[in-house]
Nucleic acid binder design. Structure first.
Length: 314
DNA sequence: AAATCGTGGCG
DNA sequence: TCGCCAAGATT
């Protein structure tokens, strides 16, 4: 057997992971939910959250009917809670404007909240069997190695990435399976850290034939997570997720004692993002927690300045 | 267009 | 230990 397509498809048939969103009967909406959750979050952590989520809210309208607070709690600690809010908004738009049916074309999908280049194509391909290139971080890395002989993907360029994959993409019926298989290869064999080339099903790889040249990209050191605004936001949100009713400012303050200015900034940004809200008596809750809650800026008109402010009440 | 946005596991 | 990485989107 020769050629990347048959080798990849045969390998996929032999040993693909049994992921719940790949099983028969899973709806386009449920696939969309999985794609939201998988944005920057590992499969292992998504799996239990997805199973509980689709059982509780199987359709866009069911999701839209839930409160933002319930959605944020169900999201739990998957990270990047703005995704949960956008998923909720996405459900609302699909229920109201698309008769509870997830759009099937990339163009329309791209207009939905939280749906970008990857997710739009993933849904069109995996849920509707459209022959469109699906480019995620795995695909970019595999193509960089197998086709271009480089250790890492070049800086992201959508047109070039899409053209690269379009060249490899087989005919209509095979395209979706080819795309999952390409992602699967990147996720389990052609990995970023310690690639398991001994398990690779491909007999032609430019990276291997060039002697596995190492990356030439100079590394820009990444920001430490500890002590960042993101960590503070996470702590604050964790307090609110754990309380069914609004909490006092003092209850939030104990979540971050070292830098009060940073704590205020994080709290304000959560209000700006619409993830939390302040009640009329000055307490705090997850967005949409209850009727006693009021919008963050309902008492003061929005500022005209370019920097968004939530008009935090003391 | 580079920075921002959580969380946890692995090498 | 600690930096890197994980099915990205948004501004």
């Amino acid at each position: 057997m020769t050629g990347i397509v048959p080798q990849l498809l045969d390998w996929f048939d032999r040993g693909q992971r049994d992921l719940p969103w790949r099983r028969p009967g899973v709806t386009p909406w449920q696939i969309l939910v999985s794609e939201f959750m998988l944005q920057q979050t590992p499969v292992a952590r998504v799996e239990p959250a997805w199973l509980a989520w689709v059982q509780r809210w199987p359709t866009p309208s069911a999701t839209a009917a839930a409160s933002a607070a319930d959605v944020l709690r169900a999201w739990g600690k998957l990270g990047y809670p703005r995704r949960a809010k956008r998923l909720h908004e996405c459900a609302t738009v699909i229920a109201a404007e698309y008769d509870d049916v997830v759009p099937s074309d990339v163009e329309t999908l791209l207009t939905l909240p939280g749906v970008g280049a990857y997710t739009a194509r993933a849904v069109a391909c995996f849920a509707y069997r459209r022959r469109v290139p699906v480019v995620d971080t795995n695909v970019r890395r595999v193509v960089a190695r197998v086709v271009h002989g480089r250790a890492e993907a070049a800086a992201s360029s959508s047109p070039r990435d899409l053209a690269d994959v379009e060249t490899l993409l087989p005919d209509d019926e095979l395209a979706p399976k080819f795309s999952v298989a390409l992602m699967e290869l990147g996720a389990t064999v052609c990995t970023a850290r310690a690639p398991r080339c001994g398990l690779c099903p491909l007999d032609m790889c430019a990276w291997r034939s060039h002697g596995f040249p190492s990356s030439t990209a100079r590394t820009r050191r990444t920001q430490r997570y500890a002590g960042t605004d993101r960590q503070v936001r996470g702590r604050l949100l964790d307090v609110l997720r754990g309380n069914d009713s609004p909490v006092t400012r003092a209850q939030l303050d104990v979540a971050w004692l070292s830098d009060t200015a940073q704590r205020d900034r994080a709290l304000d940004s959560l209000l700006v993002d619409g993830l939390i809200e302040q009640t009329a008596d000055g307490r705090f809750a997850l967005a949409g927690e209850g009727d006693q809650a009021v919008a963050a800026d309902s008492c003061v008109p929005p500022l005209e300045s370019s920097a968004p402010q939530a008009n935090l009440r003391r």
